[in-house]
Amino acid sequence: MLTRKRRRLGAKIAVFTGLCLGAAFAGLPVVWMLSTSFKPNGEVFAVPPKLFTKNFSFDAYTAILSDGAQLRFFLNSYVVALSVTALTLLVAILAAYGFSRYEFPLKKSINAVIISVQAVPPITLVIPYFGLVVTLGLYNTYPGLILTHMVFTLPYAIIMMTAYFNTLPKELDESVKVDGASSWTALWRVLVPVSVPGMVAVGVYTFMISWNEYLFALTLTRTDDMRTVPIGIQLLMGQHSYEWNQMMAMSILGSIPVLILFLLFQRRFIGGLTSGAVKA
């Protein structure tokens, strides 16, 4: 009995130690970024390295936030990511309604195309996109970025929204149609209002993809006033002679929207995944 208890305690200590080692691997780089952002730049590579500096300050953050060029990156990222989110939701809701509520010729093939779009490598698309965007006069503009980001966000949004609509009973929209309303009214007046949780999940995910996108933002814009945050972080590496504290502050500021969205919707994100796997 005693040995059994002891063995259990031993296992507990072993698992806890393993978890702590894993947490150090996963978390220490993030802690180090945070710590560096509060240091004066001269102290970044001090020997021995210090986690907590005596000269703690928010100087790096104020430097970023008072620099119009840096703020412009944030403005660009918000404009692009919010537009992509709104447009993706609109187009995906319409498509999902078609997939969920109708049978029609070529339904399976169209669905297969939408799914396979997800596997196409961005590097394959970026060359013709460059040609297209220049031809259409969208080079170095918001619409050029917004449109091309949608190629990543749309397939998954349609798949997610269709799955969501499929969980809602058909009687819901058909009852409105019997009263003489069109399917259009049924969609916007009945289905969309009860689909807010699904739309939030799709919207959050779409926002994150667009906010983080790098390759298209790099190739389809040219001037600094059109660059987004990920490119801004990279530019900071070149132009200042390695202001590490400012680079870390910019990285943290650039991660905040995604971190907040994740913390707010964490349960929905992980829970959705978990419940999906249990059902399968």
């Binding site: 809602l168 009860v194 949780p197 999940a201 995910y205 993809i209 929905r268 994100f269 419940s275």
Partner: peptide, 11 residues
């Protein structure tokens, strides 16, 4: 975050 997202939550 290109990593695929979770399934949508049940209504």
């Amino acid at each position: 975050l290109d990593h695929a997202p979770p399934a949508p939550p049940a209504p």
